[in-house]
Amino acid sequence: MGVIGQLMLAYLAVLGFGLIINIPRHALNVAGWIGTITWGGYLIVQAYGGGVVLGSFIGSVGIGVLSNLVAHYKKMPSIIFNIPSLVSFVPGSQAYQMVRNFALGQYDQAVGFMLQVVVITGAIALGFLVAELLNQLIAFCQQQWRRLKV
C-alpha cells in the first residue's frame, strides 16, 4: 500500500470523524485536507527514521497552525478543524495493547505501552503549545506588515 493510499485513508478518516462530531457541512472538506497534509508530514518524518513521537509532534504543530489559518480565512472557530484532523494521531493501537496486556497480567509489557501512550499524547499536547506560539507570531507579523504598508 503506497503513500497515496495512506493519504486517501487519512482524508476519509478525518471526514468520518467530522461527521460523528457534527462539524458544519462546508468545513468537512477543508478539515479532511488538513488531516491529509499533516499525515503526509508524519509520513515524511517516518521515512527519515524520526519515529512515532516526533511524527506526532510535527503533525500536531501542523494541525494547530493550519487550523488557525483556515479558521481566520473561513471565519469559523479553529476547534472545528483541529479536533477531526487529530483523529489519525490518536495512539489507539498502543492504548489497546496497554489494556490488553494489563488484562492478561503481562504488566512489564503493559507499562511499556502505557509509557508510549503517555509520551505520544504529551508530544501532541506540546505540539499544540508550539502551534499556539507560532500562531501568535504569525498574527504579530501580519499586524506589523499591515502597519508598514500603511
Partner: peptide, 27 residues
C-alpha cells in the same frame, strides 16, 4: 441540525476501516 443517523454511521465506518489500515498496515 445534526447530521442524520445514517450519515453518522457512514462516518463511523469511515473512521474505523481506514484507521485500522493506517495503524496496522494490513487490509
Amino acid at each position: 441540525r445534526s447530521f442524520p443517523l445514517w450519515l453518522q454511521l457512514v462516518g463511523a465506518a469511515l473512521v474505523s476501516g481506514p484507521l485500522m489500515i493506517m495503524f496496522r498496515q494490513e487490509t
